[in-house]
Amino acid sequence: MKPVSPARSPAAARAARAAGNATGALGAPDLDWAPPAVGTGATTPLWLVGLFGVMLYWATMYLDRNGGGFNPLVFNQGELLADLEARVPRSEADALLAQGRRVYNVYCSACHQPNGRGTPNQFPPVAGSDWVLTEGPNRIIRIVLNGMQGPITVNGNQYNNVMLPWRDQLSDEDIAAVVTFIRGNAEWGNNAGPATPAQVKAIRDATASRSTSWTAQELLGIPVKD
């Protein structure tokens, strides 16, 4: 850009010179008001733009590696939520149990009773039940999802009733929680392993097309454990 030099009247120029002469400012020449000249020829060097691009890429990589996935719970740079999860003492079951107790009290306890013993000849027990305390929760998740009908033998006793399906009412997490609760409820003397939301989701997806309730016969054909 060109320095702009203002047209000055001779008188004004004289006045300006008079003012200017007195203002050496410790060796500084007098400054006219025009902005300093700026060269327009030289462009930003290409290598600088290239390096800038590289550094922008580095910035995204850095944020990806050290940003903790932008998760508010990750405080150590370089970690992800998974690292936190791995450190938490294995007490997620406690949380699942608490949630499972709530779900059980709302949806299950009317028939299976708060103590899990069911009603003789009407509703089978879940406390100490051989259907509940299997090695894996595959069958019982299916029962909760789709319900159950027809004759079934539990701990040697015959029952013949209908259990409602809860597929639409309960989320994967709710079902995992309630299954974990009834399988692992120490108050009832149960001590079987938990169910995870992932397991429930897998079974829910696998049985998505099923609209009828299970029968005991069908279920016995399904392995208790993957």
Partner: peptide, 9 residues
């Protein structure tokens, strides 16, 4: 399964 470890306080 992770949950079968002890329920450590």
């Amino acid at each position: 399964a992770p949950v079968e470890a002890t329920n450590a306080p």
